[in-house]
Amino acid sequence: MPEGDTVYAAATRLRAALDGERLVYTQFRVPSLATADLSGRTVTSVRSVGKHLLIDVSGPDDHPENGAVSIHSHLKMEGAWHVHPLGRRWRRPGFQARVVLRTDRREAVGFDLGVLEVLTDPDSALSYLGPDLLAVDWDRAEAIHRIESVPDEKIGIALLDQRLVAGIGNVYRSEICFLRGVLPTRAVRDVEVGAAVDLSRRLLWSNRERTARTTTGQTAANARMWVYGRRGQWCRKCGTPIERGDLGPIGEDRVIYFCPHCQT
């Protein structure tokens, strides 16, 4: 499931393939960008911001400093970016491709992207996001302040609100609540927000370069998570069966896993 660490890893792969390279071919396979053509321009940077991925591209050759844009994508549930040498067969069906970017040596393809757009001012467009948990200049104090500004909100919902802190998804919020020993329905005012924020940063940071996410420190497929995806299985700490529920804004219920004994 794409969360901040997944997007960070995707940006790292794309940066290695595209950063500083001239695009010789671009194809956008969404109606709103059907006529867009960024060929001939140079990729100036690739970065992740929470769950968002930005590929910054220079302006035209005659005025590279003017007309610079960013290819903004969000993976949502099914999206992925693949990078490979030119001519290699795609690992997903062509009808799932939403954008194709080629340099002289490599090709990057975005499949099933939940969001794909070209922005002239990406920083303003994403200014609503809370502090990015994987940013080098991570603002811990601001993240704590934003979460504590909604004291009556359930902690499980607050952690998922990208306006408060960016990068956490369903997997991490279940694991964070378990490791902090709090039910996801507990109000923010009754939670040690600083400790939860610090744990969030550590978990995402330690997984940002892993191929298989783990919150237990174990890498075996059946041992990576404390509670997420383990409904009915025994809690690794107390032996109580793990439960599953739905928790999210009205009309946007999202799955949550928890131990009814270890979490209060």
Rank of each mutant, 00 (worst) to 15 (best):
A141D: 14
R163A: 11
D137C: 10
R173T: 13
E153S: 14
F178R: 07
E175G: 00
L159F: 10
G130L: 08
L134N: 07
V182A: 01
L159N: 05
I168R: 09
A143E: 05
T185N: 08
Y172A: 13
A135Y: 01
I144T: 00
L160P: 12
V136H: 09
F178D: 05
G130R: 04
G130F: 05
R146Q: 08
I157W: 00
I147C: 03
I144H: 03
L134Q: 05
R146K: 15
H145I: 02
E148G: 12
P131Q: 07
C177G: 10
D139G: 13
A158L: 02
S149V: 09
A141L: 04
S174Q: 09
K154A: 13
L164M: 12
V136L: 07
G167V: 13
L179E: 14
D161N: 13
P184D: 05
D137S: 15
R180T: 00
D132L: 04
G169I: 03
R146A: 07
G130P: 08
V136N: 14
G156R: 09
G167Y: 09
I147M: 12
L164P: 09
R163P: 04
G156D: 02
I155V: 15
S149R: 07
R140I: 00
G181T: 01
G156H: 06
P151W: 04
L160Y: 13
A158Q: 01
H145T: 15
F178E: 05
E148F: 00
G181R: 14
A141N: 10
A166N: 04
E142W: 01
D139P: 11
D161A: 03
L134P: 02
V171S: 07
A143K: 02
P184S: 12
E153R: 15
I168M: 11
A166F: 13
L164D: 08
Y172W: 14
L160M: 15
G156A: 12
L159K: 06
L133R: 12
R173A: 13
I147N: 02
R180D: 00
D152Y: 00
L179N: 11
S174H: 10
D132M: 02
D137I: 07
V165G: 01
L183R: 12
P131H: 03
I155A: 13
F178K: 04
R180A: 06
G181S: 12
L160A: 14
E175H: 00
L134C: 08
K154C: 06
V150F: 01
A158Y: 02
R180L: 03
V165A: 09
D161E: 12
W138D: 04
K154T: 05
K154Y: 03
D152K: 00
E148D: 08
G130Q: 03
I157N: 04
A166P: 08
H145R: 15
I155R: 08
A166G: 03
G169C: 08
L183F: 02
V150L: 08
R180N: 01
L133G: 11
E148C: 11
D137E: 14
P184W: 07
C177A: 14
R140M: 06
R146L: 13
G181F: 02
G169N: 08
G130I: 05
I155Q: 09
I176C: 04
A158G: 05
S174D: 12
V165K: 06
D132F: 05
K154M: 11
